[in-house]
Amino acid sequence: MPVKIFDAHCDVLSKLLEDPELDFRQEKDRLDVTLDRMLESNIGFQNFALYLPAKFSGNYRHILESIDLFHERILSNRQIRGIRTKNDLKLAQSEGLIGALLSLEGVDALQGNLTYLRILFYLGVRSVGITWNYANWAADGVLEPRKGGFTSQGLKLIRECNRLGMILDVSHLSEAAFWELASQSEKPFIASHSNASHVCPRLRNLNDAQIASIIQTGGVIGITFVPSFVHAEEPAEMDHLLFHIDHICSLGGSRHIGFGSDFDGIKEKITGLEHAGKYDRLVDLLQKHYSEQDVERFIYKNWYDFYMDHLPEDNQFTD
């Protein structure tokens, strides 16, 4: 039986926001992730990021419009089920449907208003990446020159995410902010699309201490397909991903590795892994180098188990 795939990050909603006429089902020229391609490579779960391109200026209204697009263009397909709770996750798996999750990439549009955060949680958003690459009202991103941590309002955001059960995502955070979040959060956190800086020394990648922290707290690291984060020299090949997997495993992370492609958020691609329809080629590569159990963990089970542990129960919304 083919191994299902769980991908923790793509940016197709950003492209749909910029051009609502794009056809999510089969727009192969301008979308990396389409319904046809997901079915072709056996993607079982996909996390769709709410990321606002610069021209939308961090406006909360555009976040709501993106959620509307998620329902109108993604969930309207009968092969896809929206995931808000543990039960949704189980049903998608048992019914053989593609599970679709929502995440927020960058809290800029919340404008420091935690009511906006709660509304997104009620609407089904289940994880939050605090920044993109630069600073916002909550924290500094990894490319912010001052390399600061969280603001006082940003620390309140961490506490409110913990209270709600909103999963915190450290991809794009500055290192100072990473360690502040690690010390303040009472719950495990993730890096949805980051690699190992030991293998490829880029600011967006995680150093060994950061990787160990995520492992220790029970989080998951989504290895990403951004070529410059995979291999220091072009071109990046699929084989280069194995070095990141091996390194994280050497730190005790075999149960804390997943994938977060960043498809539709990248222009350059790994050779042989240019879009979601080729994800199954990565599975084939992994099966040549790792045990069947490890491949299942990396490509699917580690993310699935994490979300099963940390998504809310159905009765949280009915009692």
Score class of each variant (00 low, 15 high):
2 P>A: 13
2 P>D: 06
2 P>E: 08
10 C>F: 00
17 L>Q: 03
30 R>I: 08
35 L>R: 09
37 R>S: 11
42 N>T: 04
46 Q>D: 02
49 A>Y: 04
54 A>L: 08
72 E>T: 15
79 Q>N: 13
82 G>E: 01
82 G>H: 04
90 K>D: 10
103 S>E: 03
104 L>K: 09
106 G>M: 06
108 D>Y: 03
112 G>P: 06
125 V>P: 00
148 G>K: 09
149 G>R: 10
150 F>N: 06
154 G>R: 13
163 R>C: 07
164 L>F: 05
168 L>Y: 00
168 L>Q: 10
170 V>Q: 04
172 H>D: 08
177 A>H: 01
178 F>R: 09
179 W>I: 13
180 E>R: 07
182 A>R: 12
183 S>Y: 02
194 S>R: 04
198 H>S: 15
199 V>H: 01
201 P>R: 14
201 P>V: 02
208 D>N: 13
215 I>P: 02
225 F>Q: 14
234 E>M: 07
236 A>M: 07
237 E>A: 14
239 D>W: 02
241 L>A: 08
249 C>V: 14
255 R>H: 10
255 R>Y: 06
255 R>T: 09
258 G>F: 00
261 S>I: 13
266 I>N: 03
281 R>E: 05
284 D>P: 00
294 D>A: 15
295 V>P: 01
303 W>T: 09
319 D>V: 15
319 D>E: 10
